[in-house]
Design a protein around this nucleic acid. Structure first.
Length: 878
DNA sequence: GGAGCGTGCAA
DNA sequence: TATTGCACGCTCC
């Protein structure tokens, strides 16, 4: 007896790609489809023990079906590149398994499978098993041919013999094509008969047996509308049936008997698994391939009024997971709560948990040790519901971020799949995305949340160990975890705004924008959308024939630096620049800020993301309060709308002076730079005097401006091209400046060389407080990628150490304010500055305290300098 | 309705 | 072809 397995390669790869998160290796190679395909392949090998085996692939874009219908598969989106690049890897893997991949120009995988299965379908000696996600293949089923259709996920399949086809559809396998002919298939763009779906089609086939039968007995069809639709679309229906029919005479050179399984090339397979970072598969393959990769069975207990939450459920430590569908936890609703601990895994509806006194008492007890995923989200969301969560000691998301900030979304499912822990579905798989996002029924939700909580509990230990191995435990425990509490309080407190001030500015801007719009349209001689770079480009460069300075990949560039160069060429340019400036203020800042004023508090509550940036900085969203305008007076006025929430208080801003260059001096140990800061010099003037070879009092403002740009360039990982662009000078001149800089600051030059070299050896760079960033591209053959990685290696320790320092200052400051029992509140952090609101009688205290703490939070070999201002609005704190 | 692009704001 | 971010409006699908 021969057992012949045929796999529909493209179909399974598609399934796997969309079912799994977009995994990738350290080198950025995507692997999710390969991974899913491989797990399925291993399962099939184990379960079926086939004697013969082949995987069929679709060949090119066109097939013989396009001759019948050129729109065939016309609406289908083209294969995502992240998937396309995985298909060749799948073939390499199959080669290592010594399994034949078959594809043939003009034919689809379906047809190849149909041909091979038909060749042995009547032979008692053969048994065929087909694996696919495509229902069309059901037409091949007979007593010797079984089709296994993937269900949700990849490794779960439904098995179809003629009996199951009959049970499911009430049809014989041969009638599947009649079904397709009538109902069509939108994913392949097969039209069928519009308005006829599965139900109607099945009814018709039940009565008339085939599509031809339907048309022979058209008069007997009940329903006037239906009859008309069938009549009008006869040609489409017949063509659709033809398209859905699998062609079984593909001219293949290989016969089934040629496809006997070869011996697996274990070396090659292991090598590939290693490259693809399939740790779990690798270990399994080393031992035996028998272990199942299916999700573990977890028992999740649903607690409710009928099965109440009791003390016995509430152990310490516990993992606590609070689910909300909205990204924004200040306004989002909690949709479910899950707890995992030594007593088991428990799910509660939000309604039940939030009203439960046991739960509240347990959560608020600081003796309860709690592990979370996104501690700040959990604390703040519960805080809005009147529950003050206290005892969080471990945040899985934070740990994952510190271990590898590039690892991606830091969703629980991503971390578990990387760390090979409890298996969790992605949120997208459970909830859908975008507008279609919705909660599943309660059991499924309980499963999903329970798994998340279980995964948190499960991951805690191994992540902790990894942090310790990386010498990052202190960073985690003493800096980031306490900071998340502080940030949560800052967010929840919010910052007060003067809404009518914003509204007035908005009215004024709108009026001025209307006038500018008129002027611009007049100058152009026609009306058009000024906000459309495309339309603006046509006006400026086609109609007005202004010189093209720069192009983007989609057309003319109309960016501000281009328009600056066109000033004087045409009066309209000034108007456009001004229109852009005011338009930005109105849409992003006035309208944007008004939109996010909290309906309950009337204040603005940003979210500081503590696990996004690659360098350790924070980011701020909804709204971003880290990019409120300051450089131009017109924009700076926005800051007048930010006010203290306490009567009589002031806004108080404290910023580090030149923190990144001071950090550079410290890390590089450059003597000249260190001395400059010790002497309290104006650093840009000092740089100018060194670079231009003049004394400091001979430095002109242009020289200082140039030197400032050079200093920026140094911090960013300098390139002559970048500097030349920034200063509008030639690359050669820029090169000279850089060379002169490095002559003056040889320690900096040495640091830049050393940091790149060390990163290449170790694979990563670190900051002063042991933050890490991996830079695999340092060994890339691609010049651009490699150069970028080199600049990153130079910049990250500087930017990241500066981030470490201000974060530490925030923790110290928060502690000091509490000890001094001040009513002042920390409101915002903007990378190198902290904003507080301070009651009048605490101004003097704070001026002393903030300066003291910011300047002494770490000790460098140069002084740290903090400067502060205060005023009645943020605008006045200058 | 969502993705990608061009643009522009901050440190 | 200078570092890190976020958000807007437009266009295209």
């Amino acid at each position: 007896m021969n057992k012949f397995v045929l796999i529909d390669g493209n179909s399974i790869a598609y399934r796997a790609f969309f079912a799994l998160p977009l995994l990738n290796t350290d080198k950025g190679v995507y692997t999710n489809a390969v991974y899913g395909f491989t797990t399925m392949l291993l399962k099939v090998l184990e379960e079926q023990q086939p004697t013969h085996l082949a995987v069929a692939f679709d060949a090119g874009k066109t097939t013989f079906r396009h001759e019948t219908f050129k729109e065939y598969k016309g609406k289908r989106e083209k294969t995502p590149p992240e998937l396309a690049e995985q298909l060749p890897v799948m073939r390499d893997l199959l080669k290592a398994f010594r399994i034949d991949s078959i594809e043939l120009d003009q034919y689809e995988a379906d047809d190849i499978i149909g041909t091979l299965s038909t060749q042995v379908a009547e032979d008692e000696e053969w048994e065929v098993h087909i694996y696919t996600g495509d229902k069309d293949l059901l037409q091949l089923v007979n007593d010797h041919v079984t089709v296994h259709l993937t269900k949700k996920g990849i490794t779960n399949v439904d098995t179809y013999q003629p009996k199951q086809v009959d049970e499911r559809y009430g049809l014989t396998p041969a009638q599947i094509i009649d079904l397709k002919g009538l109902m069509g298939d939108s994913s392949d763009n097969i039209p069928g008969v519009p308005g006829v779906g599965e139900k109607t089609a099945l009814k018709l086939l039940n009565q008339f047996h085939s599509l031809e039968g339907v048309y022979e007995h058209l008069e007997e069809v009940s329903g006037k509308k239906l009859k008309e639709k069938l009549q009008d679309n006869e040609q489409e229906a017949r063509m659709s049936k033809q398209l859905a029919t699998i062609y079984r005479e593909v001219p293949l050179t290989l016969k089934p008997a040629d496809l006997a399984r070869g011996e697996v090339d274990e070396q090659a397979v292991k090598q590939l698994f290693k490259e693809l970072e399939f740790q779990s598969l690798l270990s399994k393959f080393g031992g035996d391939v028998e272990e199942k990769v299916a999700m573990e069975n977890l028992t999740i207990t649903v607690l409710s009024n009928d099965a109440p939450l009791l003390d016995k459920h509430l152990h310490s430590p516990s993992a606590l997971y609070i689910e909300m569908l909205e990204e924004n936890y200040h306004v989002g609703e909690i949709t479910g709560v899950a707890i995992a601990n030594a007593a088991g895994i428990f799910y509660m509806s939000a309604d039940y948990a939030l009203k439960n006194d046991h739960f509240k008492a347990w959560a608020e007890d600081d003796q309860t040790v709690i592990y979370t995923f996104d501690a700040k989200r959990t604390v703040v969301a519960l805080g809005w519901k009147g529950i003050q969560l206290n005892g969080i000691t471990f945040d899985v998301q934070m740990a994952s971020y510190l271990i590898d900030p590039s690892a991606g979304s830091h969703e629980i499912a991503d971390i578990t799949s990387r760390k090979d822990g409890k298996q969790v579905q992605t949120d997208e798989a459970v909830y859908g995305k975008g507008k279609k996002q919705q909660l599943p029924e309660e059991n499924e939700l309980a499963q999903h949340l329970g798994r998340k909580a279980a995964a948190i509990l499960d991951l805690q230990e191994s992540l902790k160990k990894e942090l310790e191995d990386n010498h990052q435990w202190q960073l985690f425990e003493d800096l980031e975890m306490p900071l998340s509490v502080i940030l949560g309080r800052m967010e929840a407190h919010g910052i007060a705004v003067n809404q009518s001030e914003l509204e007035n500015m908005g009215e004024d801007l709108t009026k001025r924008l209307d006038e500018l719009e008129k002027k611009i349209h007049e100058a152009a001689g026609e009306t058009f959308n000024i906000n459309s770079p495309k339309q603006l480009g046509v006006i400026l460069f086609d109609k007005l024939k202004l010189p093209v300075i720069k192009k983007t990949k989609t057309g003319y560039s109309t960016s501000a630096d281009v328009l600056e160069k066109l000033k004087g060429e045409h009066e309209v340019i000034d108007h456009i620049l001004f229109y852009r400036q005011l338009g930005k203020l109105n849409s992003t800042y006035i309208e944007g800020l008004l939109k996010v004023i909290h309906p309950v508090t009337g204040k603005i509550h940003t979210i500081f993301n503590q696990a996004v940036t690659q360098t350790g900085r924070l980011s701020s969203t909804e709204p971003n309060l880290q990019n409120i305008p300051i450089r131009l007076e017109e924009g700076r006025k926005i800051r007048k709308a930010f006010i203290p929430s306490q009567e009589g208080a002031s806004l108080f801003a404290a910023d580090y002076s030149q923190i990144e260059l001071r950090v550079l001096a410290h890390i590089s140990k450059d003597e000249n730079l260190i001395q400059a800061f010790k002497d309290g010099m104006d650093i840009h003037t000092k740089t100018a005097s060194d670079v231009f070879g003049v004394s400091t009092d001979e430095v002109t403002s242009t020289m200082r401006r140039t030197a400032k740009a050079v200093n920026f360039g140094i911090v960013y990982g300098i390139s002559d091209y970048g500097l030349s662009q920034n200063l509008g000078i030639s690359r050669k001149e820029a090169r000279t400046f850089i060379d002169r800089y490095f002559e003056s600051y040889p320690g900096v030059k040495k640091y830049m060389e050393d940091v790149v070299e060390e990163a290449r050896e170790k694979g990563y760079v670190t900051t002063m407080l042991q933050r890490r960033r991996y830079l695999p591209d340092l060994t890339s053959r691609n010049f651009n990628q490699r150069s970028f990685a080199e600049r990153t290696a130079m910049n990250t320790p500087i930017q990241g150490s500066a981030a470490d320092i201000i974060k530490k200052a925030m923790v110290d400051m928060s502690r000091a304010m509490k000890e001094a029992e001040l009513s002042s509140v920390m409101l915002l952090q903007v990378h190198d500055e902290l904003i507080f609101e301070v009651p009048e009688d605490e101004i003097k205290t704070m001026e002393k305290l903030v300066k003291e703490i910011m300047e002494s939070t770490v000790e460098l070999n140069v002084p740290l300098l903090a400067e502060m201002e205060h005023g009645k609005t943020w605008y006045d704190a200058k």
